[in-house]
C-alpha cells in the first residue's frame, strides 16, 4: 500500500532529507509518461522505420517484430521481439524506445529491462503467458504501460505498478470504435465518482474490483492518477484528435502508419493532429491527401476469440 499512497500527480511524493540519488521511483516512472503527453508513440519493426517515425515527430517508438495487423494475419504465438532488433532500434534514434512483453511474462520484462528500453508495454497484442497474473511491476525500475477497457482494469494495473495506462482499443483493425468505448468507459466512471461519499466509494471500489486507495485518489483528482493514452485502432489524424478531445493525454499508433500508403506523411499528420486536436481548420489542412489509410476491419466480422482486448483481467 505504501506505493499506492505515494502516487504523484504534479509529483506529490514525500522525500527524505538525504541528498541521495533515487532511481526507479514512482515519480521518475510517471515522469517520463508526463513528458510523452501531447505526443504520438509509433509502432516500428525496423531501425529504418524508427528513423522515419522520429523524423515525423514521434515522441517515442514501440519496437516490435510484427505490427498488430500482421500478428492478426499470421496467427500463432506472438512474443517479445528479438533483442537484436530492439538494440538496433535503440541505436537508431534519440527518442525513448518502448517494447512489448506478454501479459504475465515477467522474464520477457526482465530481458527488456536489461536491454535498456525506456518503457515496457505489458500488452494484450502479444499472446498472454499467464491467465491469472499480470507482471508485478513494482519489482522493476523500468516503467510499464498497460491497456485497460474500464476504470477498474486501469486501477488494477496501477495497483500492480503500472506508471501509464492506455485504452486497449482493438489493435490491428484500424477501427477506432473500441478505443472510444474504452476511453468513454474510464471517463464515465470517473464522472460517477464525483459526488460519491466515502461509503459509496467503498462499495464502488468493490464493484469495479479496484484497490480502494486508488479509487479514492481518482475521485479526489477527477482523473486517472497516471498518464492515459489512446491505443488500438487509430488510423487517421481525425481519429487521433477524436481521442484527444475525449480527454486522453496522447496517442499510440500501431499498424495505422506503416500499413498505410504514405507512412511518412501520415505519421507527420497524426503528430500535428495531436498538437492541434482542437483546431478543425488545421485538422482539415493536415488530413488532406494522405494516400490510402490501412485497410480496416469491421469488428462485427471478428469472433470473440479474435479480439485482443479481451486478454488480460
Amino acid at each position: 500500500m505504501s506505493e499506492t499512497n505515494r502516487l504523484p500527480v504534479n509529483g506529490a511524493n514525500s522525500h527524505n532529507s538525504q541528498n541521495e540519488v533515487i532511481t526507479g521511483s514512482f515519480a521518475v516512472k510517471v515522469g517520463l509518461a508526463q513528458m510523452l503527453k501531447g505526443g504520438v508513440i509509433m509502432d516500428v519493426v525496423t531501425a529504418e522505420q524508427a528513423r522515419i517515425a522520429e523524423e515525423a515527430g514521434a515522441c517515442a517508438v514501440m519496437a516490435l517484430e510484427r505490427v498488430p495487423a500482421d500478428i492478426r494475419k499470421d496467427g500463432g504465438v506472438a512474443r517479445m521481439s528479438d533483442p537484436r532488433k530492439i538494440k538496433e532500434i535503440i541505436a537508431a534514434v534519440t527518442i525513448p524506445v518502448m517494447a512489448k512483453a506478454r501479459i504475465g511474462h515477467f522474464v520477457e520484462a526482465q530481458i527488456l529491462q536489461a536491454l535498456g528500453v525506456d518503457y515496457i508495454d505489458e500488452s494484450e497484442v502479444l499472446t498472454p503467458a499467464d491467465e491469472a497474473h499480470h507482471i508485478n511491476k513494482h519489482k522493476f525500475t523500468v516503467p510499464f504501460v498497460c491497456g485497460a477497457r474500464d476504470l477498474g482494469e486501469a486501477l488494477r494495473r496501477i495497483g500492480e505498478g503500472a506508471a501509464m495506462i492506455r485504452t486497449k482499443g482493438e489493435a490491428g483493425t484500424g477501427n477506432i470504435v473500441e478505443a472510444v468505448r474504452h476511453a468513454r468507459a474510464v471517463n464515465g466512471a470517473i464522472r460517477q465518482l464525483h459526488g460519491m461519499d466515502e461509503d459509496e466509494l467503498f462499495a464502488f471500489a468493490k464493484e469495479i474490483r479496484a484497490p480502494y486507495p486508488l479509487v479514492k485518489l481518482t475521485a479526489e483528482l477527477g482523473r486517472l492518477p497516471v498518464v492515459n493514452f489512446a491505443a488500438g485502432g487509430v488510423a487517421t489524424p481525425a481519429d487521433a484528435a477524436l481521442m484527444m478531445q475525449l480527454g486522453v493525454d496522447g496517442v499510440f499508433v500501431g499498424s495505422g502508419i506503416f500499413k498505410s500508403g504514405n507512412p511518412e506523411k501520415r505519421a507527420r499528420a497524426i503528430v500535428m493532429a495531436v498538437t492541434h486536436y482542437n483546431d478543425p481548420q488545421i485538422l482539415a489542412e493536415i488530413s488532406e491527401d494522405l494516400g490510402e489509410p490501412m485497410v480496416g476491419i469491421n469488428l462485427d466480422t471478428l469472433s470473440e476469440a479474435e479480439k485482443m482486448a479481451a486478454r488480460g483481467w
Binding site: 532529507s17 526507479g24 515519480a27 521518475v28
Partner: peptide
C-alpha cells in the same frame, strides 16, 4: 541525454 536513458532517470535534492 547526458544522464542516459530512463533506467538512469533519478530524483535528488
Amino acid at each position: 541525454n547526458y544522464f542516459g536513458r530512463q533506467a538512469d532517470s533519478f530524483e535528488t535534492l
